[in-house]
Design a protein around this nucleic acid. Sequence first.
DNA 1: TCACAATGTCATTCA
DNA 2: AATGAATGACATTGT
Length: 583
Amino acid sequence: MGWESRLTAASADIDLIDILWRQDIDLGAGREVFDYSHRQKEQDVDKELRDGGEQADTWAGEGAEALARDLLVDGETGESFPAQFPANVASITEAVPSESEPPALQNSLLSPLLTGTESPFDLEQQWQDLMSIMEMQAMEVNTSASEILYNAPPGDPLSTNYSLAPNTPINQNVSLHQASLGGCSQDFSLFSPEVENLPVANSSTLLPLVPSNSTSLNSTFSSTNLAGLFFPPQLNGTANDTAGPELPDPLGGLLDEAMLDEISLMDLAIEEGFNPVQASQLEEEFDSDSGLSLDSSHSPSSLSSSEGSSSSSSSSSSSSASSSASSSFSEEGAVGYSSDSETLDLEEAEGAVGYQPEYSKFCRMSYQDPSQLSCLPYLEHVGHNHTYNMAPSALDSADLPPPSTLKKGSKEKQADFLDKQMSRDEHRARAMKIPFTNDKIINLPVEEFNELLSKYQLSEAQLSLIRDIRRRGKNKMAAQNCRKRKLDTILNLERDVEDLQRDKARLLREKVEFLRSLRQMKQKVQSLYQEVFGRLRDENGRPYSPSQYALQYAGDGSVLLIPRTMADQQARRQERKPKDRRK
DNA sequence: TCACAATGTCATTCA
DNA sequence: AATGAATGACATTGT
């Protein structure tokens, strides 16, 4: 699927690309000529198409029907294209007569696809579409050649009437100025809107277009590799011999190697499905201005964890916070720490916090059930106590009388271990003989907490400690949540960066595809130019020298044949304009 | 012993 | 005003 689908989504201009590609097929240039790697797969199919087209050989022959078929169905995508070529093909073609059958050749002038007399194609429409696309490029590519070619002023209504004065024969519009050549190898001075502003005095020098007697369009294009045709070579004087020196592609600057490399890398990243972060890192080798550097150790795993965290309301460490107790405390009776159903309440209370990302990967504050903990030797080395996070079952087991089967040594060890598990506040509470768990102190709602305090006769020191424990305990959970939030924010930002990099890669790819299409369009314009120019004849029936004359396109849709020198002047003028505008 | 990460604590702000 | 959440800064702890 790839690029083709994107192209079709783009615009009617892109449809035109395929329409013109059809012409390429008929012209003997397979689409793969422009396709590079993307289209090589379709070579065979294209070949078949092309072969079929060449068998037909004469455009006018199986013309209309085969043409309609080709036009309506894209051989590559199966897409259908509207055969929407307005009928007013007339004007320019009338000025380009043919030796054999003048009426038919009017249509055949521009393209084999235009042959059939019943062909609905509108030559002018094609020119118009071509020009509008190329004007887009002209905004980017500022080469003299392209500027000459596209010097329709910005905002020039390319979409407006480009018809070559339907009621006016082209030989009224195509003006042949006195030949006074300047070297103009790169001049592609077709279609300058300024031509229409030429002094009327020049009209005296206009030469009438005379029907050609010589050209064979088939021989001109049948086997030409259009890739080499871009930008008009000097036409060699005869319409039959249109092959000229290849000229530099002004698009080259847009498709420089770095960009293509970057794009291909991103293609790798996205289409081959390898780690987008790796892709982004690769890309950063090109994109040093991004200032972003993602750690490859993140994502996708870290990503998934963050995503899960944002929605889950599960077992955050703080939710499992409960008073830790050791068997040694249970002996203290009232001071004893009991794990009770309150831990459940705590979990609910924690749930109200509304922020329980699964963050254990990053914050190891969530202790497992001590029964499991005993099975995890490495956890036994955890000396410091984060008792708020201890699971209730840990407390249960701690409160239970030690099994009689346990030896005293191991009992002491366990007590020692659990003692170490206590937080400082728990030690303080124990020292101050606080008669309820830190868990309750911290997590009870204010009312219940006050109730609880009122149940006991507590000294001022005890009350103060209890308040501190509550404050610190709450703050501890808040800090944990805060850190979790921070981590989540970071992860989300990383994901956003990846998304944006994906988008960037996609846009770059699309850009390349459009540029490719644009290049094809230019090649086709060049072909059309040569075709038209090669068919022009002066009053003596001789072809015009491409070194002395050039076609220019006027804003009103007319096509003028003017001397090269004039075209050069206008080209220079057009070159200056955009630069001035930039200042 | 040092660096570092994880966690706890304090002070403060804000709702 | 009381309460608690949020958070920056610093302290403590463990590796």
